[in-house]
């Protein structure tokens, strides 16, 4: 390894610090505003308070729970649709399959507003559906599905799923047994990564959701926009604080959960046989 001079190292550290500060300071200021009694007087003169946070909770608690509900439902739906889809696309590679893959990926390139508009034009007339949170769920699934499919497909391609499945078939396993015993367990890293990604994207999604929501189906990001537009700056900041407090532990928790699952898998492979999946 090449030795770098102390000067260069100090310079590097300095630049890194400045860039980090450039990004982190606004976050800290914004979060601090949420616990400031009066932002225009500053936190030192007006003092700190959690009144704003409490007020946000009474006004917007519903949006927090709806966001979580939609995110979990989106993960469930993309698992149910995306994993089998990725499996089929991997198993039968053809020009048609590539076209399907491209079509699934399209919603990434199309602005969320346009997708939302299409959904409104098509299903806006179905009153009950239009008014329910399931309408937003459909939008989220459309938008997040490619992340699940791509993530699972990448893993399937990496483990040579086709040959593994032929191996299982040669031993007498039926198509369903092959999927349950061989494909699913070996695709787990991709499924976990996809689920994490979908969860995160769904909680933060704004474009689509803003178009699709009703006053009774506001998610957290939509509520945020609402509060920025119509509330005091301190309320909006307190809301951001709640979002931050919610999403950061959630993401860390999900990462830890995924890591622990992977480790259990590894341990099971070394020691006693893992729990069996019975179809």
């Amino acid at each position: 390894m090449q030795r770098t001079s102390p000067l260069i190292r100090a310079l590097g550290a300095g630049v890194t610090f400045l860039v980090s500060a450039f990004m982190i300071v606004p976050v800290i200021l914004s979060l601090a505003a949420g616990v400031t009694a009066n932002y225009f007087q500053g936190i030192w003169r007006s003092g700190a308070t959690i009144d704003w946070v409490a007020e946000v909770w009474t006004l917007y608690a519903g949006t927090v729970f709806l966001s979580l509900q939609i995110a979990l439902a989106t993960v469930a739906a993309t698992l149910l649709i995306g994993v089998p889809a990725a499996y089929v696309l991997n198993r039968h590679p053809s020009r048609g399959a590539r076209a399907v893959e491209e079509i699934i990926t399209l919603p990434l390139a199309i602005p969320g507003l346009a997708i939302a508009l299409a959904l409104l034009v098509t299903y806006g007339g179905f009153g009950d559906f239009r008014k329910s949170w399931a309408f937003i769920l459909v939008g989220h699934v459309l938008y997040t599905l490619p992340f699940m499919v791509r993530s699972v497909m990448a893993v399937l391609a990496g483990i040579d799923a086709r040959t593994l499945e032929e191996g299982a078939a040669s031993l007498g396993a039926t198509p369903w047994q092959r999927f349950a015993h061989v494909i699913l367990p070996n695709a787990r890293p991709g499924i976990l990564a996809g689920a994490l990604m979908v969860m995160t994207l769904s909680i933060g999604e704004f474009n689509l959701t803003w178009m699709l929501h009703t006053p009774l189906t506001k998610t957290l990001p939509v509520g945020l926009a609402d509060s920025y537009a119509s509330m005091r700056l301190e309320i909006a900041s307190a809301y951001t604080l709640i979002f931050f407090i919610m999403i950061v532990p959630l993401l860390i928790g999900l990462q830890l959960f995924a890591a622990s699952l992977d480790q259990t898998g590894a341990r099971n492979r070394t020691g006693q046989p893992a729990e069996e999946i019975r179809p």
Binding site: I159, D160, T163, L164, E166, G167, A168, S170, H181, V182, P185, N186, R188, G265, R269, T270, P273, A274
Partner: peptide, 15 residues
């Protein structure tokens, strides 16, 4: 039939 593949096709999720 019993089949042996060039790439082994052993299941990595099983011992």
């Amino acid at each position: 039939v019993g089949m042996v593949f060039q790439s082994y096709a052993l299941f990595p999720n099983m011992s």
